[in-house]
Write a protein that binds this DNA or RNA. Structure first.
Lengths: 229, 229
DNA sequence: TCAGTGAGTGAACAAGTGTGCACATATGGT
DNA sequence: ACCATATGTGCACACTTGTTCACTCACTGA
């Protein structure tokens, strides 16, 4: 058991010159961090108790209420954090520009690196997407929806399949994003001492993304938009 | 609160001629059913308490131990049930044969019908796939893995892309299955009074599956098997 | 027929939970 | 310099939880 030591029994002792608002945000982050950490160790969010979180954060249970009304609110804050990470990822890929050769492998590499850099965020996103409370699920759907739309817009900006309507582009992107998230979950669940398996999963992931874009390259609107017959 | 009425206070009263083993299996099913029902109403499995389940099943908490060692064991039984449903689905699609026109739309229709017939199983599968305890996640991965392999074999039997190695076929199928499960989760989460949204989601789903097979039709092993360069 | 088995009951427990309340005290504006 | 504010503490409360124990009594099979 970690049993992180409690904060000094009076506020402000730890960072005397820190400023009040700063301190508040600090313990708020500690609470969020504690939740993420606990979730990384088998726990799933809905089975997380308020007391557990405050214990891990090194804070008395009642202090929780200074920051969140209840666990649901903390959950939403967590989702927001994950969404932020996702957006940062998109920025990163965008910044990398459009390499002339093997765009897919390149982007996937950046993605996997990002997943490994923020395992807790991706695990949370993947696990609460279908698992959490209805409220939280909806929140995650929104974030993922944003991500899909941004990605579609990015594709448009680099001139990819500029003949397709936005609907079609977004449908393609959502397929890609689903595959991404599933892969993240699979890869993060792997025992860390099996580089061979990891390699296989990664190759499988790249193949799937490639296959999707192979299909996307030939997609025709009529095939999808035709609701009759 | 449902507060289903308790069983008669002595065993065997309810179905006097039922036989002992039959009665045991009956309450066992009641427990599994109770868990599924609770999960359908917002709860996620790891946040389910033993007492909650027995309450919903109309049984005293201690009776639980006559059937499962703990909640984890019940979870595994649940996963097995879901796996059974998945296999039944495959059989159903297989039985329907290979229609000459629009195979995809046809199969998707059967699938969606199945999802709506067993919403709790599909919701459970989708939600515990990434969310539950490590043990349960692994169990679900196994079931899904079986499903993927069976599906690949089915494709092989109808002569689909008989030139591809099994690896490639399975990689395609796992993409399809992921898309299926995501779609199920999305569709089941929809408010039931929005047929328009449902319709849109379904069309989107069909498009995605179509796109995948469009890509699959052009897949070449070299592209995926080439680990160098 | 009659003992034994085993699915169910109810009471009890220690531990953990969420939350309300009164209290401390550093911070920050006046 | 000082008082209100706000962040964190400690204690207390009523509940719920998982699990134990001794029990009942219908069904089973010899």
């Amino acid at each position: 058991m970690p049993a992180r030591k409690k904060l000094e029994s009076t506020p402000g002792t730890e960072i005397p010159g820190g400023g009040r608002g700063a301190r508040k945000q600090l313990t708020r982050e500690r609470l969020l961090d504690a939740a993420l950490t606990l979730m990384n160790g088998g726990h799933s969010f809905p089975s997380l108790s308020l007391r557990e979180v405050t214990r891990e954060a090194g804070v008395v249970p009642t202090a929780f209420y200074r920051h969140f009304r209840d666990m649901d609110e903390l959950g939403l804050a967590l989702v927001e954090e994950c969404g932020l990470t996702l957006r940062r990822l998109l920025r990163e890929v965008r910044k990398a520009g459009v390499p002339t050769t093997d765009i897919i492998r390149h982007s996937v590499a950046i993605y996997l690196q990002y997943v490994r850099a923020n395992p807790r965020h991706f695990r949370t996103a993947a696990s609460e997407r279908n698992g959490g409370s209805p409220t939280m699920r909806q929140a995650i759907r929104n974030e993922v929806g944003h991500f899909v739309r941004e990605m579609a817009q990015d594709l448009r900006l680099i001139g990819y399949r500029s003949d397709l309507p936005t609907d079609a582009l977004e449908m393609i992107c959502s397929l890609v994003v689903n595959t991404m998230l599933n892969a993240a979950s699979d890869i993060l669940d792997l025992p860390a001492d099996q580089p061979q398996l990891t390699r296989e999963l990664e190759e499988n992931f790249i193949s799937q993304i490639r296959l999707v874009f192979l299909g996307a390259a030939q997609w025709r609107v009529e095939a999808g938009a035709d609701h009759k017959k």
